[in-house]
């Protein structure tokens, strides 16, 4: 409970009953309060924060362990047969096939994953909102053209199309982000379009129109704020998709290229050596899974917390 002094509705308490102090809370405050009660949401938030901290602290970790990210420890980091060494005192999570510290590389990989996740999500939400808002609000032929455009993009086999784009441009961080944006704005645009079609008939939009507000103003000032909650929820759920997509492309050797440390790339290297070095698969896999699971769980909780029609499921 967040005690709020004002406004207190004790003045309208029915006569004869003791006046009850009821603090009014905004839907946002209610949602945050619900979220704080949600243990799963808090746990996933902790995981996300830890991952972000790991990513930010990657250079610190390299200094602290004394293992720069690209340094190959051929003497201590490889066995006499040239194989990676497992987790031990010097290398907490073991080393990879070149004798590099897996822990440090994992931390640097988190940077790429989170960067790609954040940048492509923000861009996809931006593009999707712009297109969905225009389609839904304008209606008529703009809507038909844009909807057809969305449907066509959705019928592209995205992974094949992505790798064919990579074939043209050559692998890299930039093209990875572009490809992810290209395929993640569509669902957002669809959701936004649907919401806007419902919103556009509401009285407050009619009121704005009768006051002489321009279409652009109605879209930006009256409709857009109503889309913030679904956008936040869907945006949160887009992050894990982007992370997985980047990891997949890097795994196929078509994403971010070596020697840059990425989780997908580390898993690709681990795939060749899993028989002798389980840690090369298990730790990056656990990192990908932890991050995507945390974002998925958090997004789900976010949706529950913001959905006022939420039905409290009762165990029977």
């Amino acid at each position: 409970m967040i005690p709020i002094e004002d406004p207190v509705r004790s003045d309208i308490a029915p006569p004869g009953l003791p006046s009850v102090q009821v603090a009014a809370r905004s839907p946002g405050q209610l949602a945050v309060a619900r979220l704080r009660q949600d243990r799963v949401a808090m746990a996933s938030l902790v995981v996300i924060v830890v991952m972000v901290a790991l990513a930010l602290a990657a250079p610190l970790l390299a200094t602290w362990t004394g293992h720069p990210v690209h340094r190959q420890y051929r003497d201590t980091g490889l066995t006499e047969f040239g194989l990676p060494v497992g987790p031990r005192g010097e290398f907490w999570l073991g080393t990879d096939q070149l004798g590099r510290d897996l822990l440090v590389r994992l931390a640097y990989g988190a940077r790429i994953s989170l960067l790609v996740g954040a940048v492509s999500t923000v861009a996809a939400v931006g593009v999707g909102t712009a297109i969905g808002l225009s389609a839904g609000f304008l209606g008529g032929w703009p809507d038909r053209v844009l909807s057809w455009f969305i449907d066509t993009t959705l019928s592209l086999p995205f992974l094949l199309f992505a790798i064919s784009l990579v074939a043209l441009v050559g692998p890299g961080l930039m093209i990875t982000v572009v490809v992810i944006i290209l395929f993640s704005w569509c669902p957002i645009a669809r959701v936004v379009r649907g919401q806007v079609i419902a919103l556009r008939e509401r009285e407050f939009v009619e009121a704005a129109r009768s006051l002489g507000a321009s279409r652009l103003r109605i879209m930006a000032v009256d409709i857009l704020p109503n889309l913030v909650v679904p956008l936040v929820v869907y945006g949160t759920l887009l992050v894990p998709q982007a992370v997985v997509f980047e990891a997949t492309l890097s795994f196929l050797g078509l994403g971010v290229t070596p020697p840059t440390a990425t989780w997908g790339g580390m898993l690709a290297e681990g795939a060749d050596l899993y028989r002798v070095a389980w840690w090369m698969v298990v730790f990056p896999a656990a990192a990908v899974l932890a991050l995507t699971l945390a974002f998925n769980l958090f997004g789900d909780s976010l949706r529950d917390a913001f959905d006022p029609r939420r039905v409290e499921a009762q165990p029977r």
Binding site: T248, F251, G264, L267, W278, V281, A285, V288, L289, L297
Partner: peptide, 22 residues
């Protein structure tokens, strides 16, 4: 459902290879 949706395909494949094959 949530675990299934969070697991990238290639991670599932690699883990299956490691556990069920190797």
């Amino acid at each position: 459902v949530l675990v299934g949706l969070s697991f990238p395909t290639f991670v599932v494949g690699l883990l299956l290879l490691y556990l069920l094959f190797f």
